[in-house]
């Protein structure tokens, strides 16, 4: 474990807590893409299948359990409890356009042609594009609530911090995983224009609004 990975995990945890807080406080999931949340649940489900077969640490296990539980709880809130506030008209990104190509790529490009390894690879590739329905929804509505932009900033920062973690591990531990690094860079690049808007607008107290 290194400081970048710990900060990254905390940023990821913060993002999830911000989202849950926003929905619980406002009793609404307006502006949130349910499709992105479904994709995240798929990411965690396919990545943490070794949850019971390989024990790394208490921290690792509890974080995995929390990520899986919170992702399904978020879906429950969006599609059941606060269903009336779910904006399905603007959440129109076709998930199959992401899942199918990513599924094919995971079969073709992976470290080992084994079920667990292919599912892990699928999860890594899927996570890198899972935010697209959410960014698409923000661009369609043309704006996002401030708390939603904080959620997106924390979420985007987590994988950016993981990139620093991979640099650190490369130089100090000699570990390197090309698949995780490439997917992590793609994932972070997708947030770039949002990061720009967040830093130039939200941090100046303005509302996040995309140029129409």
């Amino acid at each position: 474990m290194n400081v970048f990975r710990l900060l990254g995990d905390m940023s990821h945890l913060l993002a999830i807590l911000i989202l849950l807080l926003k929905m619980w406080k406002t009793r609404s999931c307006a502006g949130i893409s349910g499709k992105t949340q479904i994709l995240f649940a798929l990411v965690f489900t396919t990545r943490y299948l070794d949850l019971f077969s390989s024990f790394i640490s208490i921290y690792n296990t509890t974080m995995k359990l929390f990520f899986i539980a919170s992702s399904y709880f978020t879906i429950f809130l969006m599609y059941s409890k606060f269903k009336a506030t779910y904006d399905s008209n603007h959440d129109s990104f076709r998930m199959e356009f992401l899942v199918v190509p990513v599924g094919g790529l995971a079969f073709l490009v992976n470290h080992e042609f084994l079920p667990l390894e292919i599912l892990w690879t699928f999860s890594i590739y899927l996570e890198s594009v899972a935010i697209l329905p959410q960014l698409f929804m923000v661009s369609k509505t043309g704006e996002a609530e401030t708390i939603t932009s904080h959620y997106l900033f924390a979420l985007g920062s987590y994988r950016l911090l993981y990139i620093f973690n991979w640099v650190y591990r490369y130089y100090f531990d000699g570990f390197f995983d090309l698949i995780a690094v490439v997917a992590g860079c793609v994932q972070t690049i997708l947030y770039c224009d949002f990061f720009y808007l967040y830093i130039t607008k939200v941090l100046k107290g303005k509302k996040l609004s995309l140029p129409a």
Partner: peptide, 10 residues
């Protein structure tokens, strides 16, 4: 590579 066998990152 030992790391690939044990995925220790979240």
């Amino acid at each position: 590579k030992p790391w690939l066998d044990k995925k220790d990152e979240l």
